Simulated assay, not measured.
Amino acid sequence: MTGTTDTTMQDGATSRGVLAGSALLTGSGLSNQLGAAFGALAFDSLGTAGVVAVRQLVSAAILLPIARPRLRSFTWAQWWPALLLGLVLATMNLSLYAAVDRIGLGLAVTLEFLGPLAVALSSSRTRADLLLAAGAAVGVYVLLLPDGSSDLLGYAFGLLAACCWASYILLNRMLGGRLTGLQAPATATLVSSLLTLPITVQLIADGKFLGWPLLLAALSGLLCSVIPYSIDIIALRWVTTRFFGVFMSINPMFAALAGVVVLGQVPVAHEWVGMAMIVGVNAVAVSRGIRGRRSAEETRRDTETQ
């Protein structure tokens, strides 16, 4: 009786862990895309680089007092991925906003999603995993349906953001096991804010570091950086990078919805179809993640029993 109760409790805890991770990632994606939309409203006044600089400054100002990373006690094994993550964050945000400015929020985020998709594909172990990632890719293509009037430079910025997002996932996963709490994102935002400091100084010199555009950029920093960075590093302690990569396919859908609500960009029919396909893939990913955790736990218990 006791053994049955323990098994039920363990299975319940495992399922709750995957579901909790999924809920956190959903909140992270929604916050990220709303923040990107708000930031886009400040492009005309601050420029894309200016919005990114404010984002990183706000992120560091909030996360550092909360996390209080013990920088002096960091080992090199902790420092090098944190420094690299800071560089990745700055590059990812600059390239994504440059893409948003040229090709729009929905398309830019769709291209950026290729990064998590690549992580999902590279870490796949079964045919079902590959089919799942392929289904997400088809959904992205249906959402996109590119035509002959493509902005190649905008696409290039989007693909650069995709490479950075893939690196972000892997580095966050690594740092999650080397630094406790929010020390990793706090340190990374400190590095990225220092890298974009010249842009911040230029904004102040030009008298642009004030007013409504600054508030929008600051809100973007909170929604795009502070909340997602904090959530992601916690979620990656509960879910695999493959699961994370596939589940992040929800971001193009959130980007399209944020475009409707904040920017007045209403998706056409094929975009709604693509979003529905992506949501379906995410639902399958969540259910497979739960079943996979349960199977692994059952196998481990059987081995211990023998």
Rank of each mutant, 00 (worst) to 15 (best):
R16T: 12
G17K: 12
G17R: 14
V18M: 10
S22T: 15
A23R: 11
L24N: 12
T26N: 10
G27Q: 04
G27E: 05
S28T: 11
G29A: 06
L30V: 12
L30H: 00
G35E: 02
G35M: 01
F38T: 06
F38D: 11
L41T: 02
L41P: 06
F43L: 06
D44V: 06
S45V: 11
V51L: 00
V52E: 06
V52F: 06
A53M: 10
R55C: 08
Q56L: 12
Q56M: 13
V58W: 03
A61C: 12
A61E: 08
I62Y: 10
I62S: 10
L63Y: 02
P65N: 06
I66C: 06
P69I: 01
R70S: 13
L71M: 13
R72S: 13
S73F: 09
S73Y: 08
F74Y: 08
A77E: 14
Q78F: 04
Q78R: 05
Q78E: 08
W79D: 07
W79P: 09
W80E: 07
W80M: 11
W80F: 09
W80C: 07
P81Q: 04
P81M: 04
L83A: 00
L87K: 05
T91R: 06
T91G: 03
T91W: 10
T91D: 12
L94M: 15
L94K: 14
L96P: 14
L96T: 14
L96N: 13
L96K: 13
Y97R: 09
A99Y: 11
V100P: 02
V100Q: 07
D101G: 14
D101Y: 00
R102Y: 02
R102H: 12
I103L: 10
I103C: 05
L105W: 01
L105Q: 07
L105F: 01
G106L: 00
A108F: 09
A108L: 10
V109I: 04
V109G: 05
T110A: 00
T110P: 02
T110Q: 04
F113L: 05
G115M: 01
G115W: 05
P116S: 02
P116A: 07
L117K: 02
L117H: 01
A118H: 09
L121R: 00
S122A: 15
S124A: 15
T126V: 13
T126D: 13
T126K: 14
A128W: 15
L132Y: 11
A133G: 08
A134F: 08
A134R: 11
A136C: 11
A137Y: 09
A137I: 06
V138S: 11
G139Y: 05
V140Q: 09
V140R: 00
Y141E: 05
Y141R: 03
D147P: 09
S149E: 14
S150E: 15
D151P: 02
D151H: 00
L152Q: 10
L152T: 04
L153E: 04
